[in-house]
Design a protein around this nucleic acid. Structure first.
Lengths: 287, 287
DNA sequence: GGCCTTCGTGCAAATTATTTTCTTTATCCG
DNA sequence: CGGATAAAGAAAATAATTTGCACGAAGGCC
């Protein structure tokens, strides 16, 4: 649990003075993290003891404990609250994107539904055939990534970003197969159709999408991904990064479940690559 | 600049006592981050003033400044030094992957070649046609992501993961076009061939790859991505995440360069999506 | 080889920061 | 209009950190 989450939770119950302290944390975090208790108290116009009490209320042992916690989480988890002024300089753009990406990962981690993920891994590992669907650029990337990840483990999987194909595949799928689809927005109506079709044929369906969305409602299992989106239209969404990480988590769990098979398959794939290229086997599996 | 980088740099010049302090930081960082100067000094068997001096040497104002820096970077940047014990529990796997991904971003950020990135953005923005190449699963994802990113900005771009097609396209490209290729390993011989071909025809080539690798050497411009790879073969590489972030950075910079055109194109794309779906325009561009 | 310088170190004092205790003030409820 | 309760500050106590100084060891110079 991080302080900002706690802060959010406690916010209503704070007193006036404590609220002033909280405001400083949120608005001028750089200051807060470097200030001594006296400086912080001064700026919030309260006495130092009040600050100590505030820290305790937030679950910290002491002021210095609080500062450590603050520095620790805030670096990553904070900035989305205060979108920094943007410049078009490469250094700033890079900083901004890296931070947002780390942030997305942070938020993803915080909101992961581990039970759903475990169930997903379980189903995928046992499926006789997997159909991975996604459209529109981002989700189609996720679908083919899923294929890229899972075929290496010796699983039978195909992916498609083509709505018509998806429908046909959903119709062809059997109850021991699994249909897994991704939709960032949760409003991909064609995917909903494919899920519905699959459901009627008792083919299990899994959605990676926003919870509560049409796509989520149409699936048997939903792995929710609920992240706030930045609103600079020039900036590609860092949500993609969170999805990729989620895929990694799922794929890892699947890998552990099919371990013997996976080791053998991976060895064969690697073998192929080494023979095919220049014999240096330090390279990655699949460039 | 973060403390661990500084620590690495200074390591040789540290005295005996200071080295003992450094060891504690590296080995028992959890302790170090929570300890007072007295506790830390006690554990390192030195006097508190020595710790203060140590902090100053590392470029910090004071011990508390040092602790903040430590907490700040360490949360993200530290763990790769101490590979944590692995379990197959979902929570641990998730934690591990998220941390590694954040780490990869951290390391990417630290090692970014901004000049090369800027040059790349410049070239891409001005290209009459862009060819994005990559193969082998990971890099092919990068190539199509590049297309996914850049076509939205109104640029002319195609991507291919097919070696033969790449060669033909490289042969067909003109000097005002740009060929951009990705290779995680840097050892994709076919990509090298395509680059060489393009170079002979004076088509500018850009590589996203390991610096010093064959692919890097074959390209006009290299945007280096040099990240250590984890060695658990079941764990998908977090390097992909770094590549995706790099793509975002490049795409953002390109976007700023072609701004008027990009705004118009994006508006049209969004329009399409909204009309085509259910009229809710809060959704992302391209699911 | 002896002397001098420099550097690293710890001790103790001084300073500063933080917490505790106690008291005052404000607010809410009967 | 009391009395109870919570909030907040003042001052004192405690703890942490830094500074100034002195000692000792290592290395260079005459």
């Amino acid at each position: 649990m991080d302080i900002f989450a706690t802060l959010q939770e406690e916010k209503g119950r704070l007193s006036q003075s404590e609220n002033r302290i909280a405001d400083i944390l949120l608005n001028d975090f750089e200051f807060a993290v470097n200030a001594s208790i006296i400086e912080l108290a001064g700026k919030a116009d309260v006495s130092p003891p009040t600050v100590t009490r505030f820290c305790r209320r937030l679950g910290c042992e002491s002021f210095s404990d609080f500062k450590v916690q603050l520095a620790r989480t805030a670096y990553i988890g904070m900035r989305y609250l205060k979108p920094e002024p943007k410049s078009q300089e490469p250094a700033d753009v890079a900083q901004d994107i890296i931070t947002k990406a780390q942030n997305a990962l942070f938020l993803l981690h915080r909101s992961l539904d581990l039970a759903a993920i475990e169930e997903t891994a379980e189903r995928l590992a046992k499926a006789e055939m997997i159909y991975a669907f996604g459209s529109g650029g981002n989700s189609s990337m996720i679908a083919s990534e899923l294929q890229n990840r899972l075929f290496r483990l010796g699983l039978r999987i195909t992916s498609s970003s083509d709505h018509s194909m998806q429908l046909m595949m959903a119709a062809a799928a059997k109850p021991k197969d699994v249909l897994i689809g991704s939709s960032f927005s949760g409003r991909n109506a064609e995917l909903v159709r494919a899920f519905t079709l699959a459901r009627e044929a008792r083919v299990p369906t899994i959605a990676l999408t926003q919870s509560g969305s049409p796509v989520a409602l149409a699936a048997d299992i939903t792995v929710p991904v609920d992240l706030p989106e930045g609103n600079n239209i020039y900036r590609p969404t860092s949500t993609r990064i969170a999805y990729v990480a989620l895929l990694d988590i799922i794929a890892s769990l699947v890998a552990y479940r099919v371990q013997p098979q996976a080791t053998a398959t991976l060895r064969r794939i690697k073998q192929q690559l080494v023979v095919h290229r220049d014999g240096d086997d330090r390279q990655l599996l699949g460039d």
